[in-house]
Design a binder for these strands. Structure first.
Lengths: 239, 239
DNA sequence: CCCTTTTATAGTCAGTACGACTATAAAAGG
DNA sequence: CCTTTTATAGTCGTACTGACTATAAAAGGG
């Protein structure tokens, strides 16, 4: 890193791209914007924008998160840097290096209410055709990362409202992983992990529809899962 | 990402920084360069450099890896993107966004043999005082990441020569984690994981010094570890 | 109002994995 | 020859997990 002046260094534009997930009707949704101009006009793209001169990528990402979701307070939301995408041809107009982030929301208020008219929309995951730029790749990487972190962290509660049932928490896992889990075993595991969830003391209950009311829980203070909660082995057919 | 021309976007310099690890005499070593000029003159720093206009960060990182280690072929080495550091004040001279990488080498040829005189040196981990810029943070993050990946991947063999004993592999784990492992249990776990290591058929053996000769193994084809090989629980004192 | 359906919760049981430990084998050093 | 050192084999009890059965408490339909 010596001798900056000895090297010719081209200027790069630095942006952030956000893969923002939420759960709606037990289906994974992603926040997307429709592009109005070339390149990729008419295609869906991940929300994002330029990092300003006085911002870190994290600051820019949280600012974009607030702008695109229309939420007034995004300070408590889970936002995590994924990785940086820097292939020379990824934006045909100029040399853009993009720091990608993943964000998780509990509920899904319709997005484009913001005064700045960020016309972002919640789109069911997988239904938005090929995205602009390399955003399909970014989105897939984000989904992989979130799924992997579910195994050894308590991240799943970031999709849940402040109070939730164990059935809802299990739904979160099943939706993100795309698998089904055994309900008694899931209960046992979650309750056996200290700090994952804590029972709402008022023995409060919630009626979602048919069956017996379920006890309510809040997210606990733990962040890691020891031992991990592994998804069902996908070694069903080994080669 | 619409409307590039509506935003004022300052140019950024984009660099890569490398945390290159190797094992020497059962001690973790890091490749560092001594800074010759301000800022941080005389301090150690991670090797790195600017991303060229026609390069991705990954390409730049592998090029720097070859330059700084002096190795002619770095194509087989493990090189992995860590994350991007973009705090506005991290370089006092200019706005620099740095994509950090971690690399693992089996053996440690003394580095600065390269014709380009990259004067990088192998320094025992933890002995190089405070590093320049935010490189202490980057190095710590890299070490954390490598240690964490040891739990659920076969990455540890990246530190080993083509043929190695189980004792040497255990040394790798113990050095990176800073803990001691039970030898029989470690054997059982490694050998029970299909594809982690494969025995060298010639019943070959190696004498390191005193005791009974050990069987030789090669790295297998597996990359993941299911179930993971967790390090001894550091919950010795819970709060 | 009873009976079925649905969901929540409790509990059982066997197989696996793992930590702690003991025992044997094969080399080097004195 | 005996001790030390390292490699390898095996044992035992516990914790965790997958698969499963059973009971409780609600809604809905006849």
């Amino acid at each position: 890193m010596d001798g900056y002046d000895k090297y010719a260094h081209e200027p790069f534009a630095v942006t952030v791209d956000l893969a923002v997930f939420t759960l709606r009707d037990a289906a994974l949704h992603v926040l997307l914007v429709e592009r109005g101009q070339e390149p990729y006009a008419g295609r869906w793209a991940l929300p994002g924008g330029f990092v300003q001169p006085d911002e870190s990528a994290e600051t820019a990402a949280r600012r974009e998160l607030a702008e695109e979701t229309g939420l007034s307070d995004v300070s408590g939301l889970h936002l995590e840097q994924l990785r940086t995408y820097s292939e020379p041809g990824r934006d045909p107009r100029m040399r853009v290096v993009s720091v990608a982030f993943a964000a998780l929301l509990p509920d899904a208020p319709e997005a484009h209410g913001g005064s700045d008219a960020a016309d972002a929309r919640w789109v069911p995951h997988g239904t938005a055709g090929p995205l602009a730029f390399d955003h399909d790749r970014i989105l897939a990487d984000a989904h992989d990362r979130v799924g992997a972190k579910f195994e050894y962290t308590c991240l799943a509660t970031a999709f849940c409202p402040p109070e939730f049932t164990l059935g809802e928490l299990q739904q979160v896992y099943e939706t993100v992983w795309g698998t089904e889990l055994d309900r008694p075993n899931f209960r046992r595991k979650v309750l056996a992990t200290p700090g994952f969830v804590e029972a709402v003391p008022g023995a409060a209950r919630l009626t979602g529809g048919r069956g017996k009311p379920a006890a309510l829980y809040r997210a606990g203070t733990a962040t890691a899962l020891h031992p991990p909660l592994l998804r069902p082995t996908r070694e069903g057919r080994p080669a």
